[in-house]
Design a binder for these strands. Sequence first.
RNA 1: GGAGAGGUGGCCGAGCGGCUUAAGGCAACGGUUUGCUAAACCGUCGUACUGGUAAUAACCGGUACCGGGGGUUCGAAUCCCCCCCUCUCCGCCA
Length: 436
Amino acid sequence: MIDIRLIRENPELVRKAARDKNMKVDVDRVIAVDARRRAIETEYNELRHQQHVGGERVAKAPKEEKAALSQELGKLKARLKALDEERVGVEAELHELMLLMPQIPDPAVPVGPDASGNVEVRRVGTPRRRDEFGFEFRDHVDLGLKLGLFDLDRGVKLAGARNYVLRGAGAMLHEAVLRFAWDTMLSKTFARPGHAGEALRFEPMTVPVLVLEKIMYGTGYFPLGRDDVYLAERDQQCLVGTAEVPVTGFHADEILPEADLPKLSVARSTCFRREAGAAGKDTRGLYRIHYFDKLEQVVVCRADPAESAYWHDVIVRNAEDVLAALELPYRVLEVCTGDMGQGKVRMYDVETWMPSRDAYSETHSASRFHDFQARRLNLRYRGDDGKTQFCHTLNNTVIASPRILIPLIELNQQADGSVAVPAALRPYMNGVERIG
RNA sequence: GGAGAGGUGGCCGAGCGGCUUAAGGCAACGGUUUGCUAAACCGUCGUACUGGUAAUAACCGGUACCGGGGGUUCGAAUCCCCCCCUCUCCGCCA
């Protein structure tokens, strides 16, 4: 959500944001509905005031005058009721329209139509192409099936297309990667800009993966992303596509003391995605699947763009540290306006090299929202000056598996068909150095 | 799932049709007193929208909000209906 005042005072800014983000929004309609809403409210308030004043007169009037006065006031009721009914309709329309308004991207974000407009920021590690292995390259599907790391057919039998079962060393590798990511996150300390002495840590937490719709709206996944979400309609709950949703929503409808900020949280969850718009795309293997596990980092901080930017760098770096420790080549991309999504101010994707795809492919996504989610979630803090403000929110993947197993398996394959376990993961694999 | 009790401001807790934004207490903040701390005393002490003087500052006023929604009434925190949540007991269960 953006501030309605921004639309009233600077509609062109919002129109441009929508254009740049490839979104269709009706700014004029918002302005008109908002004006009507305020007119209704003014009249309604005025009539209610009359009613209150009149009501007091009834209470104090001599008995014989009460009936006449009451009857007189009764005339207000019809108008008030009509006004109230119109207000409900107008507010509902305004709310619906506001849910569609784009967050204004940072001026530094490259303007572009889609993923083709994304800009590479840096590249770390050396990608290895399939013909550079010195033996016959196998992709993760071949390797995984041969080594018994997962079972795709039975995953489909159990749950339909894009489902799978990790087994044996594959299941262990999955857990190892996640547990390694936990430990990496929890071993670090952080300080706010200008507070060098601080030793803030990410707080580990578990969260519900089945949440109420309001949290989906609050984090910006509804209404526009609804098609990609599994619904448990009987209970009016939704399966989350990321722990970002419950973690960011954790303090919804609260006013936090400024001293409690920033809130640094990290949570693992299973993530459920319908992949509604992706029919026929990435159908091979473990790349695009309906469920996976992900460790997610979330930051809730003061409404300060500079601090927000600072934490954005921090969470990108955290992800990079994990990839570097796993010895995986990756690049960081600045995502352009057309590819960044409704609520985001700025966004970086991290793409890890996957030889089978002959490309860097998305494994992480780091987003900065400013107060977009906080407004929807009603997530505020009370500043040291006593004023309440909406927080800023950010999030990034720490690790998502099994997608990350694709480069991990493929890049560590040996001539004999076995897969070497990177040193960082061996402690989490009971010391196993080689699978197969 | 069944039966009962209950949901009021940061917390505790009165109110049970008008004079209640809501007593009282605690916490918090400002001040007086004070060698310091404490105590005592005085004051402040919700959120949002909105009107006026006015700068989105300050002040004065209005409206909404006593779990959520609807109803009765000139008027509802207070009465009625539906829903949600919490607690206790019973049942079931990892």
